[in-house]
Nucleic acid binder design. Structure first.
Length: 878
RNA sequence: GCGGGGUUAGCUCAGUGGGAGAGCGCUUGCCUUACAAGCAAGAGGUCGUUGGUUCGAGUCCAGCACCCCGCACCA
């Protein structure tokens, strides 16, 4: 016997185990030629399941379950990312507890410790994912550092190198002094800060009474200054051409140079040039052949080039230098100034533009191809507007710095011959150099984590080997990702996919929001607004949690998650449970084989619920096809609660108790609609739907997971819908009047209904017993004879207690008039539209997109007229 | 500065040219045999603003205001 309340805990454990044991998650032969595949955005091995993962995976799981039920052979590849810097940081923190550092351990031992850590905790998240009910193919599990993937990484690196896409160079890059590694452009997060702008006097070499004032936000970098630049058109400075300046404190002689880059309107119009510590200054330095003075150590302390400031941290140094400048009269003034400060996306430390030798990927061509495939429609974006960001980024892309000075990751397959100096790049570790020397030293750097992630869609399918799996499932069908990694990951996958497989990595991309708190703010530990998905599942059940994630989704960047919503959907789960409980109680003497609904004599409500059911099947399917999750969720919610439970179940009660043929008929419909609804709901709420499905009589399949997705041709039964609307109106009116008069529900009263139209009276008379069921206790008189509003014989005679005139019921004549006018208007518009399209003048002069739009409008209008005419016919039948 | 998204009920949001909607909250009445995690009734909106297209605009177009986000730049 089913409990009065749904208990998620028992069901969840049971079915997750059952599904896995049956192997439903792995690809199973589907309908011929129908394949569906996805790769999961791999969580970091340091990760535990957070709201973002839960959301992203729920969306994917919904689609996968949906496709599986539709008969696709599905593959959803789960995996984890080695997450270079993030993981290294975590393990280093662990070591710290033991009083160790990675330097003390040495590279080899440190990497061994990371692997150990990975073995221990790396798959924690998989266990947590299971609770969420994700149905990914565990046996296809991948890891970015496993052998197969590493092979792909090498192949790609070597080919890119051989084809000239990869080069090594000494440039200004973003340096994180804490992680002590280079970062790519997008690994820096900018934040507005209220800082200071320091104005410093640089005296002339030949005249220490006069000076040029420069402005800077980073005074400590003056130690690396090699020139002062001004705009060649700046009248203030033209006269100083050829003069030299003295760098305060350091006393280095600086040339005054002229460069168009300098904006005369900013600050004093004079710019201190520090080529080793600023990207733009580096360019100026190159143009003017200036020396590079690097003043920082790797940890952003001052090195020996900083003279007496050596050893100071950059911010200490700033303080000291400002003080020294003030003391010696070089400091003109300090202003408050708001500027953007770049921080490391992994540790939040302020990055330093830093000169170093790094490896880069030339991006331009790759980006062009990535733009092209999307423009050609080979990849569709949902929602479509994300394409704009994608294009914008790719169009102004910079070369990608791919080398990292950390130990955890794919070491570059690059060796330097210690004898001849040759650089060897190879797929397999070389034993000797071309010169015959075996004295080869491998590059110390590892690759950016995102380098390996960008190969994910094909490396997980076995590439560079092109096996059966690859042939069947590549390109993948869909990629689901948050917008935050559109550039980090999605765009790069497209570039790599196109370059190395000659095809796109996925046909569709669904870009979804991130999860915020109830105010729409990013969840973070420091804000203390983090919600643990495991908590939610524990408290309200996984199904309710999943449903609330999906029903909440909007186009805002952060969706507002609140526990209240989860509670609401927990109630919905319970509603489903209880409705099913009721149906099952009445299905004990029923076996599904007996049923053939079309052979029964269906009454109004049966036809209505079947019509509504057909509609909801169509809508849920359509919305899922377009990744409109909240709309799909709302449709099924509305149908189950608002239509099936509130109306149909109530209406069917008396018939279940009535004569046998009626009972059988009702059972058939209940069975059909409940089973179908459970299937529609299953992708959203996998556990409860399985639990109930298993209790249904006459097992269709051994699991709802592998049952067939409902396919209903929509029966546009307008007449039924209209009649039902009338019926609902009557019931509502009686309830209202009764409530207004304060009549308690126990008391039997006499009600007179006076419908406006004779045909309405007919419907009411037919269904009078149901009206009585829904509005309990009433004795109802239907008086269709009374002609004048508000007057009727029974009412005057005092034979009734309340009198219910039916307002708001569809007035057929008026409706016909309305539709008639609409048709006329639309036809006129169509004529005008056609006239425009046949006018040569218009076709010549109007831009092509306007013409296309006009043509589309033409079609739409024609369609609309058809629809309206059909509606008119329906009305005429009454 | 460039680009994107948004503005509809107290809150969160649906709404793809023709009847202003849902959930939550609120008020009122009900333990009516599936469900009080429930049922029923109700209050509550000049759809940001100004124009335009249209027979007709919450919906399409343009401008404006405000909010959010991304990218770029200023030393």
């Amino acid at each position: 016997m089913m409990e009065k309340r749904y208990n998620p805990k028992i069901a969840e454990e049971k079915w997750q185990t059952f599904w896995e044991k049956k192997g439903y998650f792995s690809p199973r032969p589907g309908k011929k030629g129908k394949f569906f595949s996805m790769v999961m955005p791999p969580p970091n091995i340091t990760g535990i399941l957070h709201m973002g993962h839960a959301f992203n995976m729920t969306l994917q799981d919904i689609i996968v379950r949906f496709k599986r039920m539709q008969g696709y052979e599905t593959l959803w590849v789960p995996g984890i990312d080695h997450a270079g810097i993030a993981t290294q940081n975590v393990v280093e923190r662990e070591l710290q507890k033991e009083g160790l550092t990675r330097q003390k351990l040495g590279r080899k031992e440190f990497v061994r410790r990371v692997w150990e850590w990975k073995e221990k905790y790396g798959e924690r998240i998989f266990h947590q994912m299971r609770r969420l009910g994700v149905s990914c193919s565990w046996e296809d599990k991948a890891f970015t550092m496993d052998e197969a993937h590493s092979k792909a990484v090498r192949e790609v690196f070597v080919r890119l190198y051989e084809e000239g896409y990869i080069y090594r160079g000494n440039y200004i890059i973003n340096w994180c002094p804490r992680c002590q590694t280079a970062l790519s452009d997008i690994e820096v997060e900018y934040e507005e800060v209220e800082g200071k702008l320091y104005y410093i006097r640089y005296p002339f070499a030949d005249d220490d009474k006069n000076y040029v004032v420069v402005a800077t936000t980073r005074p400590e970098t003056m130690l690396g200054d090699v020139a002062v630049a001004v705009n060649p058109d700046d009248e203030r400075y033209k006269k100083f051409k050829g003069r030299k300046l003295v760098l305060p404190l350091v006393k280095r002689i600086l040339p005054l140079i002229f460069d168009n880059y300098v904006d005369p309107d900013f600050g004093t119009g004079a710019l201190k040039v520090t080529p080793a510590h600023d990207g733009e200054d580096f360019q100026i330095g190159k143009r003017h052949n200036l020396p590079l003075v690097n003043i920082f150590n790797k940890d952003a302390t001052i090195n020996e080039k900083g003279g007496i400031y050596k050893g100071l941290d950059r911010y200490e140094c700033r303080k000291v230098i400002v003080e020294d400048l003030r003391k010696s009269g070089y400091l003109e003034k300090i202003e408050d100034y708001v500027y953007r400060l770049g921080k490391c996306y992994r540790c939040g430390t302020v990055v330093e533009p830093y000169l170093s030798t790094q490896w880069f990927v030339r991006m331009k061509e790759l980006a062009e191809d990535a733009i092209r495939v999307v423009k050609e429609g080979k990849i569709e974006f949902y929602p479509d507007y994300w394409k704009r960001s994608y294009f914008d980024w790719l169009e102004k892309i910079h070369d990608w710095c791919i080398s990292r000075q950390i130990w955890w990751g794919h070491r570059l397959p690059v060796w330097y011959c210690q004898d001849c100096g040759e650089t060897v790049v190879a797929r397999t570790d070389p034993a000797v150099c071309r010169c015959g020397s075996s004295n080869l030293k491998q590059e110390e750097d590892v690759l950016d984590t995102w380098f390996s992630s960008s190969l994910w869609p094909f490396s997980t399918l076995g590439w560079p080997d092109v096996g059966e799996k690859f042939k069947k499932f590549y390109p993948t069908s869909l990629l689901c990702s948050g917008w935050d990694i559109l550039f980090f990951w999605v765009a790069r996958m497209v570039m790599m996919g196109v370059k190395f497989t000659g095809d796109v990595p996925f046909r569709k991309v669904h870009i979804h929001p991130l999860i915020g708190d109830e105010k729409g703010e990013k969840m973070s530990k420091s804000k203390g607004n983090v919600i643990d998905p495991l908590d939610m599942m524990e408290k309200y059940g996984t199904d309710a949690f999943r449903f609330s994630l999906v029903a909440l989704k909007t186009d805002a960047p952060y969706l507002k998650f609140s526990e209240e919503r989860v509670k609401g959907y927990r109630n919905f789960a319970n509603k489903v449970w209880n409705a099913s409980r009721f149906v099952l109680m009445n299905l004990e003497d029923f076996s599904p084989s007996e049923q053939d609904i079309s052979s029964f004599d269906l009454c109004l409500f049966d036809r209505w619920i079947l019509s509504r059911y057909a509609k909801v099947v169509k809508e849920v399917t359509k919305n899922l096809d377009n990744f409109r999750f909240p709309q799909a969720a709302q449709e099924i919610y509305q149908f189950i609660w608002g239509d099936f439970c509130d109306w149909y179940l109530e209406l069917v009660k008396p018939r279940l108790k009535g004569e046998l043929s009626q009972r059988k008929l009702s059972q058939s419909i209940l069975y059909k609609v409940l089973k179908g609804s459970l299937k529609l709901l299953h992708p959203f709420m996998p556990f409860i739907t399985e639990e109930i499905f298993q209790l249904l009589p006459g097992k269709e399949k051994e699991s709802i997971m592998i049952s067939d997705w409902p396919e209903e041709r929509l029966i546009e039964d307008r007449e039924t819908e209209r009649k039902m609307a009338l019926f609902m109106e009557v019931v509502t009116q009686i309830r209202t009047v009764r409530a207004e008069m304060g009549i308690p529900p126990q008391k039997e009263i006499r009600v007179l209904l006076r419908p406006k139209k004779n045909e309405s009276a007919g419907i009411l008379r037919e269904n009078i017993s149901y009206i009585k069921t829904l509005v309990k206790g009433e004795q109802i008189i239907v008086d269709s004879v009374a002609k004048k509003p508000g007057v009727c014989a029974s009412a005057i005679a005092g034979d009734v207690d309340i009198f219910v005139p039916l307002e708001g019921v569809l007035d057929v004549k008026k409706e016909k008039e309305r539709i008639g006018k609409l048709i006329a208007d639309t036809e006129k518009e169509l004529v005008r539209c056609k006239a425009r399209l046949s006018s040569e003048d218009f076709l010549k002069k109007a831009p092509p997109e306007v013409v296309a739009k006009e043509k589309e409008k033409n079609m739409q209008l024609a369609e609309k007229i058809e629809k309206l005419k059909k509606r008119m016919e329906d009305l005429s039948e009454i």
